[in-house]
């Protein structure tokens, strides 16, 4: 493996990490800020990805498709939330996985529109040619030969940074105080005259829109979309990141996503005396053990505050 190829590979791993970071920032709004145990988060990513893909393959320009894709993800959040947000926490968790699976199965079966298991091709629309333009500009004007994955890597992390900064800013608002109060005790919030249901619905929509962004970037990275990209396991990897970084900590999300992405994609690069599928299994054993160890010994995660840990 040459060094250039290796660099391209790491750029890929880090882009995936950035996409996960955005995905989990959305999850943080649900779980960390509002106490909504959303186990179907991947559905919002899928909504962002497939609505981008379906719009661009039907002639909508990519730049117009992106905000619409976020809107679709947010609307899906509202749609899922309306019947489920009044349920008890453990019921909500299961029902959200179910909602995510319903969406995935529908995508899989609507072959005419989505390509089903054969995949939705050219889902990133004008992105590849735009990417080539960027690379050419760098080469022609600055004389720098960029690896082809670098532009998306930079864009992804810029987007992640902007979202994280916005969330930090939102964090100081009375709105988030009300969300945190919902997380602590809904009765107390209702007794204080705050509309609990609306607050939860808004948080669900915001986190869903953020996950929608991760879906857009995923589409740009992969170009083709397959239903199996959006299995429930993605949500649980998101939870592993959230737990490792610390529930309630935005910075923890960033670090957690790099660590976990390295474990998922990165170990492929290391030389194991094992067959590829065994390595694949092994890395999920490691992720499982990390989740267990963090939950047992440091439930607030690496960067969470013990006083604000809300796992009860």
């Amino acid at each position: 493996m040459g060094p250039l190829l290796a660099f391209g590979f790491w750029a890929y791993v880090l882009t995936v990490a950035g996409i996960y970071a955005i995905f989990v920032l959305g999850l943080q709004v649900h779980v960390g800020d509002t106490g909504l145990l959303n186990f179907g988060h991947v559905a919002f990513m899928a909504a962002g990805a497939y609505s981008t893909g379906l719009m661009v393959t039907n002639g909508v320009p990519l730049l117009a498709a992106i905000p619409l894709a976020m809107l679709v993800a947010a609307l899906l959040g509202v749609l899922v939330g309306l019947p489920t947000l009044r349920l008890r926490g453990d019921y909500f968790a299961i029902v959200t996985i179910a909602a995510g699976e319903i969406l995935r199965i529908m995508i899989q079966n609507q072959q005419g529109a989505t390509g089903g298991t054969l995949g939705l091709r050219k889902a990133s629309g004008g992105w590849p040619s735009f990417n080539r333009d960027i690379l050419r500009w760098f080469e022609d004007t600055l004389g720098i030969e960029l690896e082809r994955r670098v532009p998306l890597l930079v864009i992804t992390w810029l987007v992640a940074l902007v979202i994280a900064l916005l969330l930090v800013r939102i964090g100081r608002s009375p709105w988030r105080r009300a969300l945190r109060a919902v997380r602590e005790n809904e009765d107390a919030v209702a007794a204080a005259g705050k509309p609990v249901f609306q607050l939860k619905l808004q948080a669900l929509a915001l986190g869903a829109a953020i996950a929608g962004v991760s879906g857009v970037l995923f589409t740009l990275l992969q170009t083709s979309l397959y239903p199996e990209n959006f299995e429930p396991i993605v949500t649980f990897v998101g939870f592993a990141i959230l737990i490792l970084g610390g529930i309630g900590s935005y910075f923890g999300v960033v670090l957690g996503s790099i660590l976990i992405s390295f474990i998922i994609s990165g170990v492929r690069f290391l030389d194991f005396p094992l067959a590829a599928d065994k390595v694949a299994a092994l890395r999920f054993v490691v992720i499982g053990l990390i989740i267990m160890a963090v939950m047992a010994f440091r439930p607030q995660g690496l960067f969470g505050k013990k006083e604000e840990l809300h796992l009860d």
């Binding site: 105080r177 945190r180 109060a181 107390a188 919030v189 840990l309």
Partner: peptide
Amino acid sequence: RVLGKMTVLENAMLAAPDQPGERMWNV
């Protein structure tokens, strides 16, 4: 029903009425 993982001051401030900052689009 105190909000254990919020400060005493935040607990009290939560209940104040007419705070436009509690609307999502004002954050």
